[in-house]
């Protein structure tokens, strides 16, 4: 991340990282999580799931464990957990 001025405590602050878990066969491909991930961390995968939809896939492991995809997903198909540091 770029700052116009580096915070004084930037060395001490530990940013929580998250891991995205995708239960891909539950997905109905609405794309909400992909469109509204604040980190733009998700994309449609090329593969089809059992229902014939393209489930999301993690693009660049930049999850901050905000749980927004988890809350927004209508299918209980995606959630985040705190990543081991």
């Amino acid at each position: 991340m770029k700052y116009w001025r580096v915070p004084l405590d930037s060395e001490d602050v530990q940013v929580i990282r998250g891991t995205v878990c995708i239960l891909k066969d539950r997905c109905k491909g609405c794309g909400y999580c992909i469109e509204y991930c604040p980190r733009k961390n998700l994309e449609f995968s090329k593969e089809f799931n059992a229902k014939g939809y393209h489930p999301p896939a993690v693009k660049n492991e930049d999850c901050l464990n905000c749980h927004y995809c988890e809350l927004l997903c209508p299918e209980f198909a995606i959630f985040t957990v705190e990543a081991p540091i």
């Binding site: 109905k28 609405c30 988890e70 927004l72 997903c73 299918e75």
Partner: peptide, 25 residues
């Protein structure tokens, strides 16, 4: 498991709501 699974009748999932429907959210 998904953190809400204890509150969902998982034996009834998938639900009937269409792709793109907001009811599930």
């Amino acid at each position: 498991t998904h953190p809400l699974e204890d509150l969902v009748r998982m034996d009834r999932i998938p639900h009937i709501w269409c792709s793109g429907c907001g009811t599930g959210s």
